[in-house]
Design a protein around this nucleic acid. Structure first.
Lengths: 189, 189
DNA sequence: TTGATTTCTTGATTTGAATCAATTCTTTCC
DNA sequence: GGAAAGAATTGATTCAAATCAAGAAATCAA
C-alpha cells in the first residue's frame, strides 16, 4: 500500500471499505521534471497526494515565474480555488523533480466525501489546513522583511534549500536570485 | 428582515424553515468604532455577516498594525483559519466605523450546516469564495509592484478610499502612509 | 568527455520606498 | 468652540534590494 494511504489510515482510522474505495479512486500518475500538473487558465479538475518527488506552484508574470509554494512527500497538491469553484486557475503547478502522484478527480472527491463520513472528515481537515497556511503566508509578507522571511524559511524548512533550485526559492520569498545569493553568503549557508 | 438574510434567501432559495432557524441562530451585535470583533491569540468562536459599517483585519507587529483586509456591507467576517481549526487566531478584526453584525456561533454553524442542506451549500460557497480571495491576494504580492497594487485597488475598489483611513490602506498595500500619499498625489486622487 | 545550457555568485550602480522631520489638515471631545 | 490628538501631506536623506554586468560552477546532453 502506498505510504500516503497508510498515513491517512493512521490518522482517520478508515474502515476496510473506505480504504478500498479510496484506493480504487486514486489514479497513479508520474510526472517528469518540469511537467505541468496544472496550467494557469485551465480548471483544476483534480487534487493529488504527492507520494514522492517535489513540486512548485507559481504564477505567470511577464518577466519571471513567481514561485509561490512548494510541495513535498505527503503534500496535497492542487489549486483549491480553482478546484472548488470550477473556475480557471490563476496558478500553475509543475514538477521540480520526477514525481509520483495519487490523483483524485473532482467527481471522485465529491463521491467519496458524500458517501463516507471519515473521508469527508479528511477533506475537511485538508481544507482547514489550507486556511492556516494561507493566513501564515499572508502574514509573512505583511509583518516580515525579505531578510526575515529568508531566515525564517532557513530555520523552519532547511531541507528546501537542499532540493529546490535557488531561483524558485527566491521567487517564493519575493526577492531576486541575486539577493537570495547575498543572504546566503551573509548567513554562511 | 435584515438585508443579508434577504440576499442569502435570493441566492439559495431557502425554505421557510431554513430561513426561520437561520434567523433564530443569528445574534445581532453592534460595535463601535475601534471595537475588536476578534483579538489575536484568542480563538475565533464566531462568524458574522456584516449588515452595516466597515471593518478591518490586521496582524500585530512591533511597529505598526499590518492591515490586511477590509469588510463592507454583506461581507462574511472572521478568521476561517482560527474558526475552523479552533486554534488561536493570528489576526485581529476591528470595526472601522460603527457596525451592525449578524453573528453565528461555531455551534450554530455546525448545527445549521449538518441539518439543512441549503445552509450547508451556503457555507461551502463562502469557503470557496475565501480560496479565490486568498489566491488573488497572494498573487498581488508576487506579481505586482506596490504602485501596481495601488493602481489596481483604486480601479477595482475606489470606494475604499472614501471610507477607510489612508494609513489602513497603506498597510493593506504593504507600503507606508507617506508612500501612499505620494502615489495619490502622483495619480491626482 | 566535452561543449552547451542553466544556475549561482559576486561586483558596481541605480532606484524606489523607508525613514526622519516638519507642517497642515481633520477629528474628537471637554 | 477651541484645545488636543490623530491623520495626511510634503520635503530631505538613507538604505535595501533591483538591476545591470560578468564570471564561476554545476548540470545536461550529444
Amino acid at each position: 500500500m502506498k505510504r500516503i494511504l497508510q498515513n491517512i489510515n493512521i490518522l482517520f482510522d478508515l474502515t476496510n471499505e473506505e480504504l478500498a474505495v479510496l484506493e480504487q479512486s486514486l489514479k497513479i500518475v508520474t510526472l517528469k521534471k518540469n511537467d505541468l500538473f496544472l496550467e494557469a487558465g485551465t480548471i483544476c479538475e483534480q487534487i493529488a497526494f504527492l507520494e514522492s518527488g517535489c513540486m512548485r506552484l507559481f504564477f505567470d508574470t511577464p518577466k519571471k515565474e513567481a514561485c509561490s509554494d512548494f510541495y513535498f512527500e505527503n503534500a496535497v497538491v492542487g489549486s483549491f480555488a480553482s478546484f472548488l469553484n470550477k473556475s480557471p486557475s490563476i496558478v500553475n503547478i509543475a514538477a521540480i523533480e520526477s514525481c509520483e502522484l495519487l490523483v483524485l478527480s473532482h467527481n471522485s472527491v465529491m463521491e467519496l466525501t458524500t458517501n463516507y463520513s471519515k473521508l469527508s472528515l479528511l477533506a475537511d481537515s485538508i481544507i482547514r489546513e489550507q486556511f492556516l497556511k494561507a493566513e501564515k503566508r499572508e502574514s509573512s509578507f505583511l509583518v516580515q522583511s525579505p531578510e526575515e522571511r529568508f531566515k525564517n524559511l532557513l530555520e523552519e524548512h532547511p531541507k528546501i534549500f537542499k532540493r529546490v533550485p535557488l531561483h524558485f526559492i527566491a521567487g517564493y520569498l519575493n526577492i531576486t536570485p541575486e539577493t537570495l545569493s547575498r543572504y546566503r553568503a551573509k548567513f554562511l549557508v
